[in-house]
Design a protein around this nucleic acid. Structure first.
Length: 480
RNA sequence: GGUCUCUUAGUAUAACGGUUAGUACAUCGGGUUUUCAUCCCGACAACGCGGGUUCGACUCCCGCAGAGAUCACCA
């Protein structure tokens, strides 16, 4: 079992196209086979300088390590098509020699004329109907065309099932362009053969071209690999496939926003595939074990970022619960607010330990933890207009805070249990409901729209900070 | 227009021809000593249409409709 991911370095990788890396990877690993990365850079006009690095970074981030390809090398390199020019030409010449291909110097305008003739007659345009009678001798600079031998074709697609196509689907396609580089249509066939790829997994947009590929395999006298078509991932709205124009975010962007690779892999693998059970959280290892092409959905699946976010939250909780906060902590590097800069890892781990179950992305840390690292801006309106406090006067709130201050100030050990007990006693002593007392303290200490459970928040804030903040609010009310 | 493909709630999906058509996200409601979230409970909500085959069809067959892909010296 050998599979491949063969992207073109034409820009960033978005969620619409990583899935065609994920499935081949899973399949290869499942069968203890090899996963190849090949860069299809034959289109020089669309070539983007850093795109290859970007592709490599994303695959590494997702944990999709390739066994052969750029960086790691392999027995059938090079793995950049631009470096394989001579190989393609050699194979094209074989076809030329056997009369299964021909040199064709017909210019674009003439071809366009043919096309228009058919268009006006409302008949399908097939270049083979206009095949030049006396093709020139091939020389550099002249494109090479395949000489189609159209016939009914049948093949099996592990996702789509049994497929067939008539002769009208096959035409004289360009094999080698005028610039001497091969077209995708030809290059991938040679590469997959030479690299011994056993399953070619790609998007459905290639499906209409498969009869042509079958014809080329036949002409070359080589066996076709398994041909698999993957349905598109659809944009959130409309019925189009997800693409850059729909604002499809790059995978890099999601990584930088704090999506975990586990969640990304899990979500994408599950979009259009399930193992027949109701399970939907899978580790990479489970995916490798359970994935199968015949359970891949045939229709396009709509991309749903909300579910990705939900799944990311699930993964954050799962990882923290399984391996502990300390082990998870390094992943949060770079996601903390500026105010946390001068705090130690230990301090941040404490905060992470009480806030992680509210995170949807790691990026949420920036918004949700600021008050742990610096004193919040006191805003008495926020305090007094709070749902639970708005019926109280400033004096009453101030009184509550004063009582709380004294009670908490008397605490010897500032730990969760003691804080909880003290708060319970305060409740009895002040004769207020939790909603009132806890809201007052919580807001005084954080001025945040929400925070973790009060005893935990106070504990992590520490005695000095907590008391100082309460005192500051009392003073602010006095001066109001 | 030709060719090919697809069709279960808003979304992703499950259901070897026999189920009150299941699950998850989203939405709405409720519960857990504040808030937000987690967690738990509950509600809403679907077999594109029309024929057949069958005792019985989401499931098999045919037709229709709708949607998508593709018809490059791009991949």
């Amino acid at each position: 079992m050998k599979t491949r991911f063969a992207p073109s370095p034409t820009g960033y990788i978005h969620i619409g196209n990583v899935r065609s890396a994920i499935y081949p990877y899973l399949l290869a690993k499942q069968q203890s086979g090899k996963f190849i990365l090949r860069i299809e850079d034959t289109d020089r006009a669309r070539f983007v300088e850093d795109a290859t690095t970007l592709i490599e970074d994303i695959l590494k981030w997702l944990g999709l390590d390739w066994d052969e390809g750029p960086i790691v090398g392999g027995p059938n390199g090079p793995y950049f098509q631009s470096e394989r020019k001579a190989i393609y030409l050699e194979w094209a010449k074989k076809l030329l020699a056997s009369g299964q291909a021909y040199a064709d110097d017909t210019d674009a305008e003439t071809i366009d004329k043919y096309r228009k003739v058919c268009y006006n007659k409302k008949i399908p345009f097939l270049y083979r109907d206009f095949r030049p009678e006396n093709p020139p001798q091939w020389q550099e600079g002249i494109p090479i065309r395949f000489k189609a031998d159209p016939k009914p074709r049948k093949w099996y697609d592990a996702v789509m099932g049994d497929l067939e196509a008539g002769p009208e689907t096959q035409d004289d396609i360009i094999l080698i362009k005028a610039d001497g580089l091969p077209t995708y249509n030809f290059a991938h066939i040679i590469d997959d053969y030479l690299m011994e790829v056993s399953y070619v997994i790609r998007g459905v947009e290639y499906l209409p071209s498969i009869p042509n590929y079958l014809a080329i395999y036949e002409a070359l006298g080589i066996e076709a690999p398994g041909l698999v078509s993957l349905p598109h991932i659809l944009a959130p709205s409309g019925n189009k496939k997800l693409g850059k124009r729909d604002g499809a975010k790059s995978v890099t962007q999601y990584r930088d926003d704090g999506i975990l690779p586990e969640a990304m892999l899990n979500y994408l693998a599950n979009l259009g595939w399930n193992d027949g059970t109701e399970e939907e959280i899978y580790t990479k290892e489970e995916l490798i074990q359970k994935f199968s092409l015949d359970k891949v959905q045939k229709s396009g699946a709509r991309y749903d970022e909300t579910k990705l976010l939900w799944m990311n939250g699930q993964w954050i909780r799962r990882l923290v619960n399984e391996e502990g906060v300390e082990k998870f902590y390094p992943r949060t590097q770079g996601f903390w607010p500026e105010s946390a800069t001068n705090y130690s890892d230990e301090d941040r781990i404490q905060v992470l330990g009480i806030i992680y179950d509210r995170l949807k992305t790691l990026g949420d840390l920036r918004e949700m933890t600021d008050y742990f690292f610096r004193d919040p801006q006191i805003d008495l309106d926020v305090l007094m207009k709070n749902k639970a406090l708005k019926k109280l006067s400033e004096e009453e709130v101030s009184g509550l805070l004063q009582q709380s201050f004294e009670k908490l100030n008397g605490l010897e050990d500032w730990d969760e249990q003691n804080l909880q007990d003290a708060l319970n006693e305060l409740l009895a002593e002040t004769g207020t409901k939790p909603a009132v007392l806890f809201s007052a303290i919580r807001i005084a200490v954080s001025f945040a729209p929400f925070s973790p459970a009060l005893p935990l928040t106070l504990k992590v804030l520490g005695k000095n900070t907590s008391l100082a903040r309460i005192q500051n609010v009392i003073t602010a009310i006095e001066n109001d």
